[in-house]
Simulated assay, not measured.
Amino acid sequence: MRTQVVIVGAGPAGLLLSHLLGLEGIDSVLVERQTAEHVQARIRAGMLEAGTVELLRSVGLGARLDVEGMEHRGIHLQWPGERHHLDFVDLVGRSVTIYGQTEITKDLMVAREKAGHPAYYSASDVALHDVTGSPSVTFVDADGAAQRVDADVVVGCDGFHGPSRLSIPSSQVWERAYPFAWLGVLADVAPSADELIYAWHPDGFAMHSMRSPRVSRFYLQVAPDEDIAEWSDDRIWTALATRLAFSGWTLETGTITEKSVLPMRSFVTTPMRHGNLYLAGDAAHIVPPTGAKGLNLAVADVALLARALTASFRGDDTLADAYSETALQRVWRCTHFSWWMTSMLHRHGDDFDAQLQLAQLRRTVSSVSAATELADNYSGIPL
């Protein structure tokens, strides 16, 4: 096969890039090691920045989002005895929207099928070749047949464990593992709050989120090596009720349908381009989920890269040559914000550290400039 762009990884980043390139008349082929059903079912991010929402609408992917998405003006910050609302619209003129990654993936898959962009799922033995010259990707397809795709450009949207990142020699890596993890819970219960609650508590961080008017998402700070088997439904609801407790407010409970432990870390690899190979999304960077930046960062990468590749295929390599440096500016800004939110809200260290965290929380909710800084980063730097 021959195409202009072969995209390794058919999650939201890869699917969106294929869609954006297709709108510009640029051919692409997607190669994904998981089944389509697995990709579509992955429960990940659920908060979309204002710029992400605007982009999806502008490229014909906003129909279900506009009906089912839950627009939020801001978030609640809480610690024992206090809960404060930060209104992003008042502070920076931007809102955020709750719309699950699974739903974005569904929308993108439907768009891909309508456009007829080729995609190979359940691919094994995926390998990249000659990325600084005439690149190609080889793999074994779902039927066991060996395949080769020649292209002008290869884009790695295949996450941390994919082959794309490892195809860049002498890359520089920055990484930080945090001394805690999240126990994530999905429950069939209507949200108990109008917007997300980020709660600092002596027992550890807790978060009340949602996926729809009927499904809620919760997180509890736990140890990185926590045994999920030790957390019964009753223990989870008790811990959530304790850490999210607030006078006059009740946490509604329901059937827990999914629970898992998510380690927390920051990871950045540079450069994000090597010859005709480009990295986007988790293949280049991972952030702790506290600031809700993972999916939005991937969208920002892809939006930038789609413009750069479109210009390059039309004879102007300026944006393509600057892609890595330009993308990394946002990556490091969002990495810092995610680290800051994580460090402020998760119980760690001693009682001295706890007092510093509470001082920062009080400053954030009482200072317009501090609240504006959080709102500006959380709602998203414009694409």
Rank of each mutant, 00 (worst) to 15 (best):
K106Y: 12
K106D: 15
D107G: 05
D107K: 09
L108Y: 10
M109E: 15
M109F: 15
V110D: 15
A111W: 07
R112D: 09
R112M: 05
E113R: 15
E113Y: 12
E113P: 09
G116D: 05
G116A: 07
G116I: 03
P118V: 06
P118C: 07
P118G: 03
P118Y: 07
A119T: 00
Y120F: 14
Y120I: 08
Y121R: 00
Y121Q: 01
Y121G: 07
Y121H: 06
Y121W: 07
S122L: 03
S122G: 03
S122K: 10
S122V: 04
A123V: 00
A123N: 05
S124Y: 12
S124I: 13
D125V: 00
D125I: 04
V126L: 02
V126I: 09
V126Y: 02
A127Y: 08
L128N: 00
L128K: 05
H129C: 04
D130C: 09
V131I: 09
T132N: 13
T132S: 14
T132L: 12
T132P: 07
S134K: 13
S134N: 12
S134F: 11
S136L: 01
V137F: 05
V137L: 06
T138H: 09
T138Q: 10
F139V: 02
V140N: 03
V140K: 07
D141C: 06
D143M: 11
D143V: 10
D143W: 10
D143E: 13
G144W: 01
G144P: 04
A145H: 14
A145N: 14
A145V: 14
A146C: 11
A146T: 13
A146I: 10
Q147E: 11
Q147I: 08
Q147M: 11
Q147Y: 04
Q147R: 13
Q147D: 01
Q147A: 08
R148V: 14
R148D: 12
R148Y: 12
V149A: 06
V149T: 08
D150S: 15
A151R: 05
A151W: 06
A151I: 03
A151S: 10
D152T: 11
D152C: 08
D152P: 03
V153Y: 00
V153K: 02
V153A: 08
V153G: 06
V154S: 06
V154T: 10
V154F: 02
V155H: 00
V155T: 06
G156L: 01
C157F: 01
C157N: 08
C157T: 05
D158T: 00
D158V: 08
D158R: 07
D158M: 02
D158Q: 07
D158C: 04
D158F: 00
D158S: 07
G159W: 02
G159Q: 04
F160V: 12
F160N: 11
H161P: 03
H161L: 10
G162C: 00
G162Q: 07
G162S: 05
P163I: 03
P163E: 01
S164K: 03
S164G: 08
S164N: 08
R165C: 03
L166C: 14
S167D: 01
I168G: 00
I168A: 08
I168H: 00
P169L: 05
P169T: 03
P169C: 02
S170C: 13
S170W: 13
S171N: 11
S171G: 10
Q172N: 11
V173G: 11
W174K: 14
E175A: 13
E175D: 11
E175M: 12
E175I: 08
R176V: 14
R176W: 14
R176I: 12
R176H: 15
A177T: 15
Y178C: 06
Y178M: 09
